[in-house]
Simulated assay, not measured.
Amino acid sequence: MLDAIVLARAVPRWCAAMHAAAPELNALDGRLGDADLGATLDKCATLMEQALPGLPDSLEGIFKRCAQASAKASGSSFGTLLTVALMTAGKHCAGRESLSTQDVAALLSEVIATLSARGGAALGDKTVLDGLDAIQRALSGARADAPALALAGAAVRESLDAFRDKPNRMGRARMFADKTIGLDDPGMVALQRMVDTL
C-alpha cells in the first residue's frame, strides 16, 4: 500500500539514488544524447531535498510539491517528462489517502498516456515509457499480497533486456538509428535506478 507516510520516506531515498546515479546516467546519455540526463536528475533531486521540510501530508500534496521542485530544475526533455509525471500522479491522487497495487497500476496507465501525448513517444519506441508500461502490466496482474516493488524491479530489468537489441525511435537517440542497437536507453536505466532504490 502506498500512502503519504510511505511516499514521504521514499523521496529522500530517491534523491540519494539520483545523486549516486548521475555520473552513470550522464555517460549513458553521452552515447545517444546530450550527456545531461544525470545532471538533470541530480538537480531535480537537490531541489526536491530542499522541498522536504514541511512536506505536505497527503499523496496529492507530496507529488505536487515534488513536481514543482522538478519544474525548477531543467528545461530538458526528461526533466519535463518527470515534472508532468509527478503532476499527473498528484491529480490522480486527489482525495485519496492510499493506493493499492492495482491503484498504482491505474495511476501508471494515466501517466503513460499523458507522457505519450506530451512527448510524442509511443510504446515500442525504446523509451522510459516502455519501462513504465512493463511495471504497469506487472502490477495490474499482481495479487493483492504480492511484493509490488520486487515485481516492478523485475519488470524494468526484463524491459531493458527486451529492448536492448532494438533501435531507439525517439529523441536525439533516433538520429543514431541502428547504432543504438545493443545499447540501453538512458531513460529506461534511470527508471531502473529509481525503482531499485525504492
Results as ranks from 00 to 15, higher is better:
A21C: 09
A73Y: 01
E49I: 06
D178W: 02
T80E: 06
P53Q: 12
I181L: 01
D42S: 08
D165L: 11
T101Q: 12
G182Q: 07
A177F: 14
I62T: 04
A89V: 04
G33P: 11
A121F: 05
S109G: 13
L25F: 03
D3P: 10
A162P: 06
A94H: 13
Q136V: 03
A73H: 07
F176A: 13
L139W: 08
A142E: 04
A71E: 14
K64H: 10
N168E: 13
R143L: 15
S70M: 07
D34S: 03
L108Y: 06
L25G: 04
V6D: 14
N26T: 08
V84L: 11
A162V: 05
D184N: 10
D42M: 00
L86G: 06
D3N: 12
G61M: 11
R65D: 05
A4H: 14
D196Y: 01
E49D: 15
S70H: 13
L47A: 03
A154Q: 15
G124T: 10
A4S: 15
A146V: 10
A177T: 05
A177K: 14
A89I: 00
T197E: 05
R9K: 15
S98T: 05
K72L: 15
L81M: 12
L2N: 03
T88W: 10
G90N: 00
A144C: 07
E60W: 03
L32P: 02
A105W: 09
G131P: 01
A155Q: 08
G124R: 11
Q192F: 09
T80V: 07
E110M: 11
F78C: 10
R169S: 05
Q50G: 11
A21F: 03
V111H: 03
A16C: 08
M1Y: 10
D130M: 07
L108Q: 02
A113T: 10
A173V: 01
E110A: 07
F163I: 08
R65L: 04
S74E: 01
D42H: 03
L59Q: 03
A142G: 04
L47K: 00
R172L: 09
T46F: 01
A173S: 13
A51D: 14
R174Y: 12
A117H: 05
E110F: 02
M87L: 13
S76A: 15
L55T: 06
